[in-house]
C-alpha cells in the first residue's frame, strides 16, 4: 500500500521536483560564479569585508526559491487531487483517510527535504571553496528560515487546496501569508539565530494541518450551503 501511494505521489511531483532541482542548482551555480568573480577578479578582501563586516549575503538570490519549491510541489501534488474532487478516489482507497493524507504529505515533505538537502549540499560545496566555516555558518543561519518557510508553505498550500469552501480558502490564504512571511523578514545576517528553534517547531507542526481540510471535505462542508 505504501508503495502504491508513493508511486502515485511520485507520478504527480516528479516534473515539479525536476524543475525545482534544476532551478535551485542553477541559481546556486550562478551564485558561486558571482562569488568567484568577486574573489578572483575584484579584491578578495573587499569582497569578504562586504560579507563579514557589512552584512551582505552572497546567497541572497536564493531567498524565495525554497518558498517557490514548497508552493510548486504542493500544487503539483494537490491540484490533481482537488480537480474534479479526485481526492474522493484517494479517500476511497482501503486505508484510513487520515493515514493516506499523512502518507501523501509525508512523501511530498520528504521529497522537498531531499531537494533542500541537495540545495544545501551544493551551497556547502560552493561555499567551502571560497569561505571559512564562520562565514558558511553565518550564511547558513541566515538562509535556514527560508528553507523552513518553504516547508511551512508546502504544508499550508495542502491545507488551502483541500479546503472545500472558497471563502475559507481565502481566509486560510490570508493567515498563511501572514504566517509564512515571518520566515522571510528582511533582516541582518544571522538575525534569526536565536529563533531557529521556534521557526523549526512551527514548520514541523504545520505538517499535519492538511488533516483539518481533509476532515472538512469528508464531512461534506461544501454541501452545507
Amino acid at each position: 500500500m505504501y508503495k502504491a501511494i508513493f508511486y502515485k505521489e511520485w507520478l504527480k511531483i516528479r516534473w515539479a521536483l525536476m524543475i525545482f532541482l534544476l532551478l535551485g542548482v542553477f541559481a546556486l551555480v550562478n551564485i558561486f560564479l558571482n562569488v568567484r568573480y568577486g574573489v578572483r577578479f575584484m579584491d578578495a578582501h573587499d569582497y569578504w569585508y562586504r560579507i563579514i563586516i557589512q552584512g551582505s549575503n552572497y546567497a541572497a538570490s536564493l531567498k524565495y526559491i525554497p518558498l517557490f519549491a514548497g508552493l510548486g510541489l504542493a500544487i503539483a501534488q494537490y491540484f490533481p487531487e482537488v480537480l474534479n474532487q479526485r481526492i474522493k478516489l484517494t479517500f476511497h482507497l482501503p486505508i484510513r483517510e487520515n493515514k493516506v493524507l499523512l502518507m501523501q504529505q509525508g512523501f511530498g515533505l520528504a521529497a522537498l527535504i531531499v531537494l533542500f538537502l541537495i540545495y544545501l549540499a551544493v551551497f556547502f560545496i560552493g561555499s567551502a571553496i571560497f569561505f571559512p566555516s564562520e562565514v558558511i555558518n553565518m550564511i547558513l543561519v541566515t538562509i535556514m528560515p527560508w528553507f523552513l518557510g518553504g516547508l511551512a508553505a508546502y504544508s499550508l498550500v495542502g491545507l488551502i487546496m483541500l479546503e472545500p469552501l472558497w471563502l475559507y480558502r481565502v481566509l486560510y490564504a490570508v493567515i498563511a501569508y501572514g504566517f509564512v512571511s515571518r520566515f522571510y523578514i528582511q533582516a541582518v545576517p544571522m538575525a534569526y539565530s536565536n529563533m531557529l528553534w521556534f521557526f523549526s517547531l512551527t514548520a514541523v507542526l504545520t505538517v499535519i494541518l492538511v488533516l483539518f481540510s481533509g476532515y472538512r471535505f469528508r464531512k461534506g462542508e461544501m454541501h452545507h450551503g
Binding site: 515571518r182 488533516l211 483539518f212
Partner: peptide, 20 residues
C-alpha cells in the same frame, strides 16, 4: 489528530492576528 491539527491552526491564527 484532526483536532490537534485544528488547534495548531488556531494557534497559528492567533499568532498571525496578534502580529498584524
Amino acid at each position: 489528530m484532526v483536532k490537534l491539527s485544528r488547534y495548531i491552526l488556531v494557534a497559528i491564527g492567533i499568532l498571525s492576528a496578534a502580529v498584524t
